[in-house]
Design a protein around this nucleic acid. Sequence first.
DNA 1: TAGATCGTGTAGTACGTTATACACTTTCTA
DNA 2: TAGAAAGTGTATAACGTACTACACGATCTA
Lengths: 360, 360
Amino acid sequence: MSKGSVSKRPTIVDVAAHAGVSTAAASKVLRNAYGVSPEMKAKVQASMKALGYRPLASARGMRGRTHTVAVVVADLHNEFSSLLVEGIRRECERQRYRLLVAPAGSGKAAQDRMVEDLIDRGMDGIVLISPLGTDAELETMATNTPIVVLGRHGASQEFDSVAADDFAGANLVVDHLVSLGHRRITYINHTTEGTNDARLPEEVRVRGYVDAMIRHGLGDAIDILQSQWSQEGGEQSGKTILSRPQRPTAVFAGCDVAAFGVLTALWEAGIRIPDEISVAGFDNIFTTSLAPISITTVDQSGLDMGGTAGRLLLERIGGRTEAVNTVVQPGLVTRKTTAAHNHLTIDAASGPAPNVSAKV
Amino acid sequence: MSKGSVSKRPTIVDVAAHAGVSTAAASKVLRNAYGVSPEMKAKVQASMKALGYRPLASARGMRGRTHTVAVVVADLHNEFSSLLVEGIRRECERQRYRLLVAPAGSGKAAQDRMVEDLIDRGMDGIVLISPLGTDAELETMATNTPIVVLGRHGASQEFDSVAADDFAGANLVVDHLVSLGHRRITYINHTTEGTNDARLPEEVRVRGYVDAMIRHGLGDAIDILQSQWSQEGGEQSGKTILSRPQRPTAVFAGCDVAAFGVLTALWEAGIRIPDEISVAGFDNIFTTSLAPISITTVDQSGLDMGGTAGRLLLERIGGRTEAVNTVVQPGLVTRKTTAAHNHLTIDAASGPAPNVSAKV
DNA sequence: TAGATCGTGTAGTACGTTATACACTTTCTA
DNA sequence: TAGAAAGTGTATAACGTACTACACGATCTA
């Protein structure tokens, strides 16, 4: 591809000279701007090809667009984030834009610094995955650069957003568990110090759980464990549940990774799943589908959400000014960690062993 | 942070004016170059702070450095890649460099295009994870931009490299299985159309398997299944194994994800693991550690490898010219999918049931 | 004390691209 | 057919930073 270190990289001036036109004309062809004849276009494009010309994004960034967008993500280890990113990437590729992934680390300060750095680096637009900070702060960002917020609730007039209906998702799980006869359903919540943002997915999910419990007349049975959505947090929650005199018959973890943790603790204690306790998660990450795990969970279709976010961002860059706020509907994926609860068996301790085998 | 869309972003000219010095002086302070007095430095830094000045990477990119590096990765879904990236990121953060992740998709053409795009975007250096292409091609790239190759074997005088000793890793697994009494050990290989690069990890691993088998006098038992290192590839391989008249007593998948696939097929068929068949993987991704899976595998310490790669890249950017090629030693992680093989039980079909429970 | 060296600051240009403003044809309108 | 409009191409001024030269005074050498 490259001629090595000796020959200089060709510039648009070289292209123009090779084609025998002005650099302005060459630039027009490059941007396919108004005011070029078909012959001129062909001539210039031939020269670009002949010289192996590639526009330098750094230089373009000083006046125009860099044709690059970024997605800010706290952590690459989250399988669901990867799906979102892949969705964005595909949409960008379709429109000949480059997507770069910016791992910011956790915490609002780190995230803010990353966004500034991305603007400094000339990104034409930015997707933020579940960002921290107030609407006002996000709107300030949006005045400088097109922004799409992914995985955070609440409509804004200043920026576009894409979110799954986490409230409905949580409802689906509770409805499912109640229909199986469960009443004592414990919810594993995610709490972050400091931030208490009603628009974060975790806040919406817990409200969905509470609402569904009340709707089923189970307000008294509401049981929320404050924890972290991580393997460790889930494991700790599982142990807490086991230490109680009266255990729940079902556990609803607000995130699959936390569900893994809960299951780890339960497996360790020899609890049969789902015979003794049903467990459900949220996100439908790949690992939940593996046969010996097979967790009932909520699917959000991350690829579609990412694709939508990418499309909205590129539309914004293209000039749209009115905000678009999208909500997608999640679906329940029923697997082997949830099953009918036999009240007689457990509550009265009088029946025989459950009928479903725990391990497959 | 930002003053909104009305006030222009401050430039180095504004800073210089505010401090009452030349732009050259302000630039010197910014780069902490030679030739500034302590008073001048303090004065300029105060002005930068007062104005909220941030250097524009696009503009810097035209003459100097952007203080940005990128890592090219085929696919973000691979948990091991995430670990490598995190290692690089931490090292960059230590040295106040920004790391951006570039998801290239699979295939050599896509990867090459991505590298060119990154150079166009002024990256100061690039880490390539298991890149395709010949040494010559990589060396050509390296003449234009500092490059570190991660997860690909073979030393080069032109670029730095960091690789795990995949040969030794494969040896560890075979040694382990043989010490447990296994002889019929099938290996699941990864084959890519077209490319047949002896320096790719997959090629080194399969050589390690072959070598160890011969070393143990099991040359006749060598059995390599050509497949893909994916859930589907592994599942297909598992089915193939099951369809054979004489099954292996152990399966060594060259990659954890493929091991999942193999296990999925075996579980489905009701095969007891590890009683009837032992299974081992490679990479030690998080999911292998989950209790009901608990796969014996090879740990490569991705964080360290990534950190080393990051350090080498920044050293190169800093001016080092001699190449450094690093190899790290992997370790075996023994878990529950491998166990002693009772030759009498299986081979002669005469013994009682194995002693270890398959499901925990 | 003349000359060299060092320390500190500045002027000015280059980097590659975009885009505004304008000039020159050609074609349309009334 | 005059004037307007449309079509096509060019000259050139930014954009924000880096850095080479150079200037000037102070300090060091011999």
